[in-house]
Simulated assay, not measured.
Amino acid sequence: MSSRSALFEADLTRLRIRTGAGTFDAVAAGPATGRKVLLLHGASECATEWCHQLRALAAHGYRAVAPDLRGYSPGVRPRLVDGYRLGHAARDVAEIADELGWRRFDLVGHDWGASAAWIAAARCPLRVRTLTAVSAPHPGAFAHALRTDPGQWRRWAYLDHLRAPGAERELLAHGAARLRAGWPESIPHERVTHYVRRLSEPGALTAALNWYRANDFTESYQPVPVPTRFLWGEDDGVVSPETARSTADWVTGPYRFEALAGVGRFVPEEAEEATTAHLLDHLAAH
């Protein structure tokens, strides 16, 4: 870890969370006695994408923990592609909470982390108090859109290069130029460098890409009964506006959808203040 990367997370506590799947690395903030919040990061990033939200949650008395997800934690890096299916990631949520001693907790997820969080919230409504999903719609809404909406299918098919054999070599060639180009300019250079350095470690990028290779959204999904807020950036190139709005059909509990203007896929970092404000408001309301 570079000194500059270490600087933006210096005030966070490092954890190692041992589960049946392996040991997850994590960062945490806030008093141990505070209301519990688990935050799941998105593709090509890691737990420190939530630095701003972790600090804000801690300042408001919450106990917030953000793990590096399976594949991103070296101690939970399955060799087979099937090990990255969303069902496994949803089980990780429950096992991590068990190891932390959390009976009930609030769940937050971005991108692939949100996809896993939707499933975990549907499976464990007695444990998940609230859900805050960012960027990724409910998997059921996404699956339906892939079958019925050519526009959404084209957006998803645009990512086929990430599923192709040899994608790792192309992304890491020439100093990882293509990989670096995946983040918007609004995300600080030192943070992108931190992500690229981590993904350049042996096996890390393959694990990250295996999330795309393992999940084709052809399974059946359950609606979410817990209070839910869904944040989506209007400039998101992966999820269409129609798909984002259709998520309302997959939540049976109290639900609020917020479309953020001028924001793309990396909502927690592109719109740190707005994301944090929505998260704190949602938690306070429930």
Rank of each mutant, 00 (worst) to 15 (best):
I96L: 11
I96F: 03
D98Y: 07
D98L: 11
E99P: 00
L100S: 08
L100C: 04
L100K: 07
L100R: 07
G101D: 13
G101K: 10
G101L: 07
G101M: 10
W102N: 11
W102R: 10
W102G: 10
R103S: 14
F105G: 03
F105I: 07
F105Y: 15
D106N: 12
L107A: 10
L107F: 09
L107S: 08
V108E: 06
H110R: 07
H110Q: 13
D111R: 04
D111S: 15
W112C: 01
G113A: 03
A114I: 05
S115V: 02
S115K: 02
S115W: 12
S115N: 14
S115L: 15
A116E: 10
A117H: 05
A117V: 08
A117G: 13
W118Q: 07
W118R: 13
I119T: 12
I119S: 09
A120S: 14
A121W: 10
C124L: 15
C124K: 06
P125D: 10
L126A: 14
L126G: 15
L126C: 04
L126D: 15
R127N: 08
R127C: 05
V128E: 14
V128K: 11
V128D: 11
R129H: 12
R129G: 03
R129S: 12
R129N: 08
T130L: 06
T130H: 01
L131R: 11
T132A: 15
T132Y: 07
A133G: 14
A133W: 03
V134G: 01
V134T: 12
V134H: 01
S135K: 01
S135N: 13
S135R: 01
A136F: 11
A136S: 14
P137C: 08
P137T: 07
P137A: 09
H138N: 09
P139H: 09
A141F: 06
A141S: 09
A143Q: 08
A143Y: 06
H144A: 15
H144K: 09
L146H: 01
R147N: 06
T148L: 02
G151H: 04
Q152K: 00
W153F: 02
R154K: 01
R155Y: 01
R155S: 05
R155P: 00
W156Y: 11
W156P: 00
Y158F: 08
L159C: 02
L162H: 06
A164M: 10
A164G: 04
A164P: 05
P165H: 09
P165M: 10
G166V: 03
G166F: 00
A167D: 09
E168T: 13
E168K: 02
E168R: 10
E168D: 09
R169L: 10
E170W: 09
E170C: 03
L171W: 04
L172D: 06
L172S: 04
A173C: 13
G175F: 13
A176G: 10
A176R: 09
A177M: 14
A177H: 12
A177V: 15
A177Y: 13
R178T: 04
L179R: 05
L179F: 06
L179S: 03
L179Q: 07
R180W: 08
R180L: 10
G182R: 10
G182H: 01
G182Q: 09
W183D: 03
W183M: 00
P184H: 02
E185K: 03
E185Q: 04
E185L: 01
E185A: 09
E185N: 00
S186F: 00
S186T: 15
S186C: 07
I187R: 02
H189A: 14
H189Y: 06
H189T: 12
H189L: 12
E190I: 03
R191L: 11
R191P: 00
R191I: 14
